[in-house]
Design a binder for these strands. Structure first.
Lengths: 121, 121
DNA sequence: GCTGAGTGCAACCATGTGGTTGCCACTGCT
DNA sequence: AGCAGTGGCAACCACATGGTTGCACTCAGC
């Protein structure tokens, strides 16, 4: 059984989970916005634009990296991070599919609750 | 300045924030899946399908309700909840727009970071 | 009116997570 | 070689959050 609801039959379901958690935090969203705006940036630079310490930014960047939303590569003594639209796009599609799925289900289900759920589907 | 990144210029940005947080929790997603599948259900019924207590379900339902993902209406002594695709659909669109926005920005930005561009810095 | 089912609320606990500070290692420039 | 800047731990703190239990209240049926 997949644990990502039902709409996303594709293998990308796991990635979606991380993306949702990562995007749920406002600081992280701000970080992504900053990153998308600058194209690339280091944790130190980013920290200068946010009301949090560099270490906090590093942690957030780690979460975003785990979610596949950003990627960092070392350049000399710096580590520059950049956004990766792929994961976001994948999640957007998953969500759109989920919304459509809900609508579809709502159309076929009436107002039953006491019933022990449909056996065949 | 809105705190929901930049892509969604519409007023729906606030709703998105709640949806993301609500969707980030696996139990909540399971709940939504159950709800979408049954059409309608009470917290007690839902609790029977999940490995958590009824009260835990009630709390999750409250979060989902605050996010606009579900709506509950009282029927006698029961409170039946049902999913509301609107908020999800809205968020899906926001996310798709954000993904497109990133791609757009990445196309125009090069690899600048060290440049103290903004005068405030 | 009594009883049973179901809801709502409050207290409480444990863990996760955001955030900070401190310190050390490494890299690059002079 | 020496100094300054940047990154990477690790420890630590505070609060939010998921989850539980207990109890009181309400609605439905007999």
């Amino acid at each position: 059984m997949n644990d990502t609801a039902t709409a996303p039959p594709g293998p990308g379901g796991t990635a979606v989970d991380g993306v949702l958690g990562a995007l749920a935090d406002p600081t992280r969203r701000r970080l992504l916005d900053l990153l998308a705006d600058r194209g690339e940036a280091t944790a130190t630079t980013l920290a200068g634009r946010l009301p949090v310490s560099r270490q906090a930014v590093v942690k957030h960047l780690a979460v975003l990296d785990a979610a596949g939303l950003v990627a960092g590569h070392r350049t000399g003594r710096e580590v520059r991070y950049a956004v990766r639209p792929a994961a976001l796009d994948d999640t957007a599609r998953w969500m759109a599919g989920l919304a459509a799925d809900w609508d579809r289900r709502l159309a076929r289900t009436g107002t039953r609750d006491g019933t022990p759920a449909p056996p065949g589907g």
